[in-house]
């Protein structure tokens, strides 16, 4: 991030490019953006993943001067972007399987490396991203992801996290948060929704691999997301970007609330934004107006059972405690000074 101005809008969610020098404006604000994931695809209204993918890939395209190849896991992003015989992708793009996007990325990177060596170059001018949803990343694709990390293969892996298997009809993944309703964690019994004590934090697991670069990002913070992608593309080796992308269908939220929800997730502390290099946390995106988790939860039908005729303030309190823990752990509040 190079701009000094801090954006904070309440009524509108458009980031204030007009206040910035032209060279500091976002890729998305430019008419020259690649539109790598171009219009006409079949994503739902308000799809956070479609937005996140376009933001991330366009930024990567600009950073690599268009020298980019993508491997894509099976999932919503794959299905909505390539309804045969059409494609929304304006970069070379390969979909192989649900669980192997990271390994396919490794293979592409290996091929590019050999091609570069044959041309007498140290690094290929072409860069590789691999991408998938949380199911394809944190569950079925996890072994390939970890393998790509530990070999330090020259791939940026981008996970678009909407906290469940939305493509197959909203089932629980290991990224589904406690309390959330999915088709396989119904709001029944003493622990309605996803149970506490389950799931995994893949960004921190990525950090534990001590790879060159790990970051979390949000579709609510375009400048931050683009800056992280841009930074990632200057680094060689294994890199991981975990983007928070609300899903109106799976979360039962208004399609107009996608950005708002992403912003509330950050401002409540439930989804911390940070960067890490070689196993060390190097920066966090501070919360400037802290909000209670309840503000975030109430906009989503997947949490409706916490607030209905049999409210569960105890569960809301536990979710608030999770957010508080994040705030403390990552030091997310602005310094008092």
């Amino acid at each position: 991030m190079s701009q000094d101005l801090k954006f904070y809008q309440t009524g509108t969610f458009t980031v204030g490019n007009r206040l910035l020098d032209p060279d500091q404006r976002t890729v998305q604000s430019s008419l020259a953006r690649d539109n790598s994931l171009t219009s006409g695809h079949r994503a739902c209204q308000g799809c956070g993943e479609a937005l996140g993918a376009r933001y991330a890939v366009d930024a990567a395209m600009r950073a690599t001067k268009g020298q980019l190849i993508a491997a894509n896991a099976t999932g919503c992003l794959e299905v909505f972007s390539t309804p045969y015989p059409e494609t929304s992708w304006k970069l070379p793009w390969l979909h192989s399987l649900f669980g192997n996007a990271a390994a396919v990325g490794s293979g592409i990177a290996a091929a590019l490396k050999v091609k570069a060596q044959k041309a007498g170059l140290e690094h290929s001018a072409t860069h590789v991203i691999a991408q998938g949803g949380d199911g394809g990343t944190t569950d079925i694709g996890f072994a390939c992801l970890s393998g790509m990390f530990e070999r330090n293969d020259d791939v940026l892996y981008i996970c678009y996290d909407n906290e469940g298997y939305m493509n197959t009809g909203v089932q629980r993944s290991s990224a589904t948060p406690p309390g959330a309703r999915t088709a396989t964690t119904l709001p029944l019994g003493p622990q309605p929704g996803e149970e506490f004590g389950k799931g995994k934090n893949v960004p921190l697991i990525a950090v534990a691999h001590e790879i060159p670069y790990v970051a979390t990002a949000s579709v609510a913070d375009l400048h931050d997301l683009e800056a992280k992608v841009t930074k990632a593309m200057t680094i060689h080796g294994a890199r991981y970007l975990h983007v928070f992308v609300p899903c109106p269908l799976g979360w039962g939220s208004a399609s107009s609330d996608t950005i708002k929800l992403a912003r509330l997730a950050h401002e409540s502390g439930i989804f911390p934004l940070f960067e890490a290099e070689h196993g060390e946390i190097t920066s966090v995106r501070k919360i400037r107006h802290r909000v209670p988790v309840e503000d975030y939860l109430r906009l989503q039908k997947r949490y409706a059972h916490l607030f209905g005729s049999h409210p569960r303030p105890d569960i809301v309190a536990r979710l608030q405690a999770m957010a508080d823990k994040n705030i403390k752990r990552f030091n997310l509040l602005e310094d008092a000074a």
Binding site: I69, A71, L94, S96, L97, G99, N100, A103, V104, G105, S106, G107, I108, A109, A110, A111, L112, V114, K115, A143, C144, S146, G147, E150
Partner: peptide, 18 residues
């Protein structure tokens, strides 16, 4: 890390012209 990855890497490499 596995044979599944071995074939997946081969798929990516082959598709990239290797």
């Amino acid at each position: 890390e596995s044979e599944f990855a071995a074939m997946s890497v081969a798929i990516g490499a082959s598709a990239a012209g290797a």
